[in-house]
Write a protein that binds this DNA or RNA. Sequence first.
DNA 1: CTTTAGTGCAACCATCTCGTTGCACTTCGC
DNA 2: GCGAAGTGCAACGAGATGGTTGCACTAAAG
Lengths: 114, 114
Amino acid sequence: MNGPDRTVVEICSALGDDTRWAILRRLEAGAASASALAEGLPVTRQAISRHLEILRGAGLVERERHGRELRYRAVGTRLGAAANQLGLMAAAWDRRLERLRERATSGTEPGEPG
Amino acid sequence: MNGPDRTVVEICSALGDDTRWAILRRLEAGAASASALAEGLPVTRQAISRHLEILRGAGLVERERHGRELRYRAVGTRLGAAANQLGLMAAAWDRRLERLRERATSGTEPGEPG
DNA sequence: CTTTAGTGCAACCATCTCGTTGCACTTCGC
DNA sequence: GCGAAGTGCAACGAGATGGTTGCACTAAAG
């Protein structure tokens, strides 16, 4: 659990914005184009388009031509992998804390050995 | 899998920064104060202090007085919960896509009824 | 061909974010 | 008490970010 994949940071960064969550929630209900997403969200089509590019860069979304429109859909693969990594990290942190507690109750007073 | 807890957005936002990852990686090796973290990272103590506040706000880190210093340590509980939610989301997205594929191969051509 | 829906690109603006420096305050140790 | 270590707070600057408008381009539809 050392190097947090660049991917994970990118995904977290992408998921750190409310508008992008709004977009993803829409996409959960079905694939849609930037223009389609624009009506129903309080931002312009261009802004949404930019967000979709970011989501695509993070691998959370894929697009597909459909006639003259680009239809975007949410893809879980990358997010699933990231969630897994984060879960492992969390478990490791809790394990470390647990070890410390054990050591503390088994006689040796804590000194937080680096 | 509807409302992404405000917490999750906050955690993602917190994890969307490289410096904060660096800090967390240090904390994985043991609790430390802002000043201690400062030596070894290419930013000032004040900057690190701000980052630690953000991490604390997201529930990724807790602090504890130790004499005149504040010692921070990584805590996995919140991150674990967030990772879980993200994992469920990812699974849901993949399931949706799978259903679409099935429907496509079973005769009905896709129209993306969303 | 003309219209219209869907995109892409660029300029521009407001704000947030990350980092800095500088100073004041507390607390441990001599 | 005094110096040094550890913090907190505030002001400030550079750059990233999220949003807008405006215009040009392509492709479906009439």
